[in-house]
Amino acid sequence: MSSSTEATVADWSAGRHVMAGELFLGLYQPSPETAGFWEGVARGELLFKWCAACARAYHPRRIICPQCSSTQLAWRPASGEGKVYSFSEVHRAPTKAFGRGAPYTVGLIETAEGVHYFCRIVAQQGAAIAIDSPARLDFRVLETGQRLPVFVVSAEGAR
């Protein structure tokens, strides 16, 4: 996949090509149920879907609340607080582009909202990523040029 979020945010219909090696698998694009999330990312915000009746946050692309079956869900900014739930350090990257950043860590962050958010986990210098390490939301430009929400484990937080 290519292209930065900022460049495509204005026109969701442009889509992105998904390749398997040299084989074109199809057009993949954010759609109306997820466009709000990517508009948030473009503004530097991490948004979760929120059911006000249940006071419960969801991610990604929740259209219906599994608890009360309401479809009246709204986008709401995440607090940005969380801790590492699971992680894996990727040594063999899926593409050449990602390979430039390897090894890097992907994993699930247990956010303060209760959402388990799959993302890149970044360790500040002197910090180590471990289960339960406190982590904070930030944004980074990844190897593909895409600017995305990540969670950062800080040296102080890890102690």
Binding site: M1, V18, M19, A20, G21, L23, L25, Y28, P30, T34, H59, P60, R61, S88, V90, R92, A93, P94, T95, F98, G101, Y104, V106, F118, C119, R120, L142, E143, T144, Q146, L148
Partner: peptide, 19 residues
């Protein structure tokens, strides 16, 4: 090269570079 695109959510997971 193609495998992770079949096992990951293309919109919310694949952009982070998982295999």
């Amino acid at each position: 090269g193609g495998s992770a695109n079949w096992e990951a959510d293309l919109q919310f997971e694949a952009p982070y570079g998982p295999t």
